[in-house]
């Protein structure tokens, strides 16, 4: 059994995971989520049975950390913040904030599929593999997610 030095995972995947997380939870929380992701991975790492699919494994953990962060944020009371949404407080206003809020509101599978397709520019087969679903299911999740986004964003933007 051989696992590569953990440092090589950080070097190879931290930047792309950060991009992925920034799209899921927003730029302000992305780095925290990434720290949490790598800490969880590091804790479990020596117990892995093999060193295959490490990148997919990291994405799974990142997705879980993002979901936790969004759930935590959803529980935060908003009234103390004078109507400002916790998600965007303290951040410089993002250009496409409406869009990204809509992305974050998508059902988990659609959100992951859409982000893998466009933000990470992956082929459907690869998205399916990474999400543990078929290529066709990946395509359907992207399609459903995009349909929903088009509706949401056109409502917000006009």
């Amino acid at each position: 059994m051989h696992l590569p030095p953990f440092a090589s995972l950080v070097e190879a995947h931290a930047a792309e995971l950060h991009r992925f997380l920034a799209r899921l939870v927003g730029p302000a929380d992305a780095e925290d989520c990434l720290q949490e992701t790598f800490m969880s991975a590091l804790r479990a790492y020596p117990r892995l049975r093999h060193g295959d699919h490490l990148r997919a494994w990291l994405y799974t953990i990142a997705q879980r950390k993002a979901t936790d962060a969004l759930r935590r944020r959803g529980r935060q009371p908003t009234r103390d913040l004078g109507g400002v949404e916790p998600a965007t407080s303290g951040e410089p206003p993002a250009v496409d904030d409406g869009l990204w809020r809509a992305v974050r509101a998508l059902p988990a599978k659609q959100r992951t599929a859409v982000l893998h397709r466009f933000a990470l520019d992956l082929a459907y087969a690869e998205i399916g593999e990474r999400m543990g679903i078929s290529e066709e299911a990946a395509r359907q999740n992207v399609r459903a997610g995009m349909r929903r986004l088009r509706k949401e964003v056109s409502v917000h933007d006009r």
Partner: peptide
């Protein structure tokens, strides 16, 4: 717009 993402600086 999805491809462009929201800018988030990252220093490895």
């Amino acid at each position: 717009r999805l491809r462009a993402g929201d800018a988030a600086a990252f220093e490895l």
